[in-house]
Design a protein around this nucleic acid. Structure first.
Lengths: 216, 216, 216, 216
DNA sequence: CATGAATGAGCCTTCATTCAT
DNA sequence: TATGAATGAAGGCTCATTCAT
């Protein structure tokens, strides 16, 4: 019981590393098996086939991520805080799990095509969290009512994703934390409802953004 | 004669369609040949191998796109107009060339891994255009001096890309034109230097903004 | 008329060079065509197929060689002179036509297997000349009556061939002329009838070789 | 287990049979696999590729032959006995292993061209044994000092090889044992030092032939 | 006659998957 | 459960041959 789950995860994590390095199609089952320290055949005791490994990589990890993100957001009072935490969570995700994130980002697109039967529901669930925060912000009047949460969630996600992917691919050549922070402010500036006043100064003390104050 | 460029492009375009539908790895040479209406062997008269087809898809099309984008931006007076045109150009690109764009977006990431020798220079050249516009805007004082063009270009690109990709994948379920317009305004709001006033109304006559289109 | 034969030989000679360099199986029709300075299709105006080219290389050249050898031997008085001339002719052949000889030697063996329908009659005709000289020598009493011309012709041919082939492959690293001369003397010593002396019995006590076996 | 050398040899021997029948280039991997009673893919568990099969056929068998020949010669007292045993060993080789010998003889020539990286060292090692015997004979005074062992080894080998090959190709139409015995005597007569008669000095002015008389 | 672009049969090789141990 | 040798389907690629110009 304990044992079997242990080996399941051993293979799953090995798969993440191998997929990150070679890509799903170039990765061989034997690569994964070797990386996991098991025999080729053993892989098939825990996974239906090669596709299933990728699916499990998605499901297991996204599920974990989703739960964690939900938990973190649930304790926060408003959409502004939640949005900021959402941004911050991405950074932590990328920093702590480069390989996993690379696999999720790169392979999820490919997978859509070769796995007709598998719809990445968890991926959409993930985006829906962002969408909910945006909607909540609209309803509470902190975000402009003109924004379309269903589209903006993709935009925000895409922006963060691309920056993070570059960061991963460049081997951490810049400060991802500051980059995403800056990104958050830009987005906020773009979507926050400005009731005749500078909301940001009191909203939070963001690093080095005194210029924003000049908004009036 | 030698000038059978016609057949080269016939195969190249067929490859775009097949890659868009099945993905590079699942696509068979025979699929492409059949789609192009030629024999399998004929493909090898115009392309070195399967990888080369993908490389050519990148190079030929990105080169064409790059030239066109350069041309369109070169006639515009300032960074604001250029940035808007950049957004608008994306829309046109996606609308007129769904399959090509899908291939470019999805496969360019995979390609990084299996084509070690091939660096997608044209892809970076494409992003550099956006980066230049952002830098130009900073220098001219229309964008805030705190923005990091080298990171922001990825963010903006990523946002547009993700929205467009969803639009492509959903089969045009929403008004991409309005969506990107709205996105442009948000970004602009986020990065434009605001000299003590609401700049937008007088800054330019952006498409009225009341529509704010797909984002509403 | 003149023209067509000219091109036939142009291709034939090109084939010899290409076969010598790459071997029959590795040689491509396009290699031969390029070497001959004609289009691929032109080859098929003069030859039935690839196999036919090799057959023609054999037939045409062996025929020419055979006629020349016949001519040279026919003017000589006795088998001894003929045998010497035969040796000398080999040297000239190898020296003047390295590539052709290499093709004839190496490919004729392979060809036996893949060209069931083609029996290298001319090759046997060539060896028969040597056989005839040996028989003539036996009849005239200049060679020992115990030699088996039908086997010895292969032996002598094989000895000369192997030495010549090494000379070709080593790029003329030794004096082929002297080597073949020495070889001739050794063979002569071995097969010439020595009047007035039964040489073997006292020459050495060879382990039980009174039978003198297959050559009798 | 790991020690599936049995299957390695099963495939290797199958390859010898198939190569002997169809030649290396005409032989298909599937032919060899079927002959060995394994699946096509299994061949690649034991051999790198098709070329490697031929290389292994050379190496494994020549190595075995070399060792055996060395062993047999090492127990013999002098070069004369060794030379005779060398001849006798050829006969046994051809008789017991027709197909292998055919492959070794015919393919080793082809191989020189398509396997640039592979130098048939073992083939040369094999010839060097013969060369050593000849040199030893010269030093001990049993062979004439005028012979060039480095060339003669090729000649002797070539003679034996060609006769043996004909025997193989003709399906054993003559008594190979007696043929090679006779060949040995002829060579011996040609190269053995004959006390009481220096034949070579005056022998050089050939056709004259009178020198033979002086043998007594 | 000459061309060379086009064809497509054929084959080597890979690797996901199975199964006897 | 675990193994890893064995399988064989699949597909990229070559090149002899054809034929429209």
């Amino acid at each position: 019981m304990k044992k079997e789950r242990e080996k399941f995860f051993r293979i799953l994590d090995a798969a993440v590393r191998v997929f990150a390095q070679k890509g799903f199609f170039k990765a061989r089952i034997s690569d994964i098996a070797k990386e996991a320290g098991v025999a080729d055949g053993t892989v098939y005791l825990y996974f239906k086939n090669k596709d299933d490994i990728l699916i499990q990589v998605f499901e297991v990890n996204l599920d974990r991520i989703l739960k964690e993100l939900h938990l973190q957001l649930s304790v926060l009072p408003g959409p502004l805080e939640k949005l900021e935490r959402w941004f911050r969570y991405q950074v932590e995700l990328f920093q702590s799990n480069k390989e996993l994130v690379e696999v999720l980002i790169v392979e999820i697109r490919q997978s859509r095509r070769f796995m007709k039967e598998y719809t990445p529901n968890l991926y959409f669930a993930y985006l829906d969290i962002l969408g909910s925060v945006l909607k909540e912000g609209k309803e509470e009047g902190v975000f402009v009512e003109t924004l379309d949460a269903n589209i903006l969630k993709y935009a925000i996600y895409g922006a963060v994703e691309e920056v993070a992917l570059r960061w991963v691919l460049k081997g951490g050549a810049f400060d991802i934390s500051r980059a995403i922070d800056g990104l958050f402010l830009i987005w906020l500036e773009g979507i926050a409802y400005k009731k005749g006043a500078a909301f940001l100064p009191e909203a939070r003390n963001v690093p080095s953004h005194t210029h924003n104050g000049g908004l009036s």
